[in-house]
Design a protein around this nucleic acid. Structure first.
Lengths: 217, 217
DNA sequence: CGGGGGCTTGAGGCCACTCAACGATAGTGG
DNA sequence: CCACTATCGTTGAGTGGCCTCAAGCCCCCG
């Protein structure tokens, strides 16, 4: 993303603003809020290290996490004046930020940057569309299977990874309760589809990706 | 949407390609497919009359409708080579269509058109984000209330309207069954929050928008 | 060693689903 | 005009998957 802003020495999927663009590095501690829903959307963020959750709340506190943002991901990019999610660091996190107005001014002249904005937004839309199918029509086991495949894809693609988020975050992402997530993981463990590493319940090995894919589809 | 393509004599919210852009009118009968998921996305569509549903299917037939498209709405605009939804006419429907490539060529030169593409995509993203909250965290009654408010907003804003879609479509949009939708509507009727017009179960009057809003929020 | 957070596990309940029957309406053809 | 059919919607009875509530485990950390 933002490949058009990147130099050649940087992996395209991470990207990097060229020297002429002002960007700041910033750090957030675990559970620290980065921005709140309906706050002015003055900055666009990119995770350089760590993980971020963005979510909406209902008045009684029910929470829906719309997306997790991992290293390289852009977030907080709005086409409106205000943020539509609250964003919080899941673990200690470093971000880069650019003034939204700066980006927009560049986009008006540079077609490549404009196209990047569109690509980024379209990618988020595709994710949301897939997630609607999950939330509306998949069973608890299918949701968890889909989630594990997504995390494997985004974290390592290696079949094992350490989840940065806790069970409650996963549950609020998948439209479930944390107990149901826990039970689904145990079931996948019992079936030999996944395993937990080294007594740590967040370190997961995918043992049978084929069966997991069957469940997640 | 696509205001930058419109002439002054056309309402901005509907828009119209200027004379130099080739666009075709097309008609689809009730339940006719307009395009299928994973088909090449060569055209972008705009509803001029009628209504369209776009949905995804799971292998066993479970369906999630991602959006309804009403008069004036753009759909089928993808940033990828293929469509990510199947689109079908809900009732007899007229659409206008433009070659996607044409639009992209123009967007590369005309910043206003490029911005329109971004705005349209961003609006769809916002809708999807709100809908994830609904699908993940709202009760059946809250979903139906939200749906009615959305339809009132988009159809007439007058407090009464005729739904183009049947109960099954509504259910597949809200992640429910058609029976649950029916029961929720009856409950809202019994509570005096809405009424049905003239023996037609699709013609609805909102009698107490305040209580409906309380439920839908 | 006590405390707390994260996670698991069990028991019971409830909301939405499933299955089934029925009613209303529109269209079709005799 | 009246069957006849198909579609759509409603309603009821019963089930079940996920939620709620609660207890307990494990690990980390003071």
């Amino acid at each position: 993303m933002f490949a058009s802003l990147g130099g050649d020495r940087v992996p395209a999927e991470i990207g990097m603003p060229p020297p002429r663009i002002n960007f700041s590095e910033f750090r957030y501690e675990k559970d620290e809020q980065i921005f709140g829903e309906n706050e002015p959307a003055d900055y666009v963020y990119q995770v350089t290290f760590g993980a971020v959750r963005s979510y909406k709340l209902l008045v009684d506190g029910r929470r829906q996490i719309g997306a997790f943002h991992l290293a390289g991901d852009i977030f907080g990019l709005e086409n409106a004046a205000v943020h539509r999610f609250t964003a919080e660091a899941i673990v200690d996190t470093k971000v880069r930020l650019v003034k939204r107005q700066t980006l927009e001014l560049i986009a008006e002249k540079d077609v490549l940057v404009a196209r990047d904005l569109l690509n980024t937004t379209a990618a988020k839309l595709e994710h949301a569309e897939d997630h609607m199918l999950l939330l509306g029509r998949k069973t608890a086991l299918e949701r968890v299977a889909t989630f594990l495949l997504e995390m494997d894809e985004r974290l390592t693609r290696a079949g094992f990874f350490a989840l940065p988020m806790n069970r409650r975050d996963i549950a609020d992402y998948l439209g479930l309760t944390l107990e149901t997530v826990s039970r689904a993981l145990r079931q996948l463990d019992e079936r030999g589809i996944l395993g937990f590493l080294s007594c740590n319940q967040r370190q997961i090995v995918l043992l049978d990706r084929k069966r997991l894919t069957n469940l997640g589809a």
